[in-house]
Amino acid sequence: MGRAHRPGRRRRIPRPVLVTGAVVLVVALLIGIAVVGSLVTNLFQTLSARPPAVDTRIVTPDESKAAKAAAQEQSGSPEADAAAWLAAQPTTYWLTPEIDPVDEVWDRIAHLAAEARDQDATVSIAVYGLPDRDCGNHSAGGLDPDAYREWTARIGDALRNASDVRKIVVLEPDSIALAPSCGSLEDRAGYLRTAVDNIRGVDTWIYLDGGHSAWHPVTEMADLLRSTGLMGDVRGVALNVSNYQDTANEFAYAHQLSDLLGGTHAIIDTSRNGAGPAGSEWCNPAGRLVGAASGAYGDGVVDTTLWIKPPGESDGECNGGPVAGKWWPDAAVELTRESR
């Protein structure tokens, strides 16, 4: 039998227990310090995050379709001059699963982030891979829901990896304004919720599709946006994307939407609105011009104007154009005829 413990005598705690307890304490302290450090870092980043404004310069992508066309066209030709001029303009890069699939999109964003550092600029991307994209029209395509979740998660990971770079995300142009024609607003809102949850992060400013001033009446557009349940989780709306409406009309529309939606912000696409709209024609209308440069205008509601739709890329197979998104030299020449 073992010896009985004498009353009043302290038991000796075995040394291994003391060592283990010390190690646990040290580890806990280190974890605590790391957590506090992370919180402080995130707080600093959040406080220092600066939304887009009129002084925002976005990346000029070196792998744009304009840049590729400039290298391929005959030197000195109008087509080459137009492509070269457009390739030098800060313009939003469109991420599509057809060009930047899930196993390549991370590298694409890393490259854009590297360009942003070199150019002291902001990354501006349009995410365009929604299931039933464009409701089967000229830009039909997109991913199935599971693939879309994976693709946008990869995009979000890449954006968060570029924590030192400011990011603008134009999320799924036409997705909300076109929904009444597709009968799919509830489904689309769910896909957009997935994308927002996957993409959002510090210094990442997300703008949902807000149509334009000649599409839906402002009260109707506000109801569509409100019904998504996402307006509290994004910076605001993107207006006039791939369209031609006058900048002044879009500013007025942005202010009306902001009043109805509790102060939401906006960005406006001015890439091809230099000659205004051509009536109700939206698909490759003739006689259009590039508009004011990215970062030209803004106010308390409109964060800034941006070139979102790359000038020179077709709207679709209409009015003599090639398939949607394909480089169209004749359009590039026409759009830049007063700028080059």
Rank of each mutant, 00 (worst) to 15 (best):
M1D: 13
H5A: 12
R6P: 02
R6V: 13
R11T: 14
P14M: 05
R15Y: 08
V19A: 07
L29Y: 02
V35H: 04
S38C: 03
V40C: 07
T46F: 13
L47H: 14
T56E: 02
T56Y: 01
A66T: 00
K68G: 00
A71G: 15
Q74K: 15
A83S: 08
W85N: 08
L86S: 05
T91C: 13
W94S: 04
L95S: 04
I99W: 15
D107F: 14
R108Q: 14
L112F: 11
V123R: 07
I125F: 02
V127N: 02
A140H: 05
G142K: 05
R149D: 14
E150Q: 13
I155A: 06
G156Q: 08
G156V: 09
L159A: 15
L159C: 12
S163F: 12
S163H: 14
S163G: 13
V165W: 00
V165S: 04
I168Q: 09
D174H: 08
I176N: 04
G183L: 09
G190C: 05
D197C: 02
I199F: 11
W205M: 00
I206E: 06
L208N: 06
L208S: 06
D209A: 06
G210W: 12
S213F: 02
A214V: 00
H216I: 03
T219H: 15
M221Q: 15
L224R: 07
S227W: 07
T228G: 08
M231D: 08
D233R: 09
V234D: 04
G236D: 13
Y244R: 04
D246S: 09
F251L: 12
H265W: 00
I268P: 07
N273Q: 04
G279H: 14
S280K: 12
W282T: 15
A293I: 05
S294H: 01
A296K: 12
A296I: 00
Y297S: 15
D303F: 00
T305P: 05
L306M: 11
L306I: 01
W307N: 09
P310N: 11
N319R: 03
G320A: 09
G321H: 01
G321F: 01
V323H: 12
G325R: 04
W327I: 04
A332T: 03
L335K: 01
S339H: 14
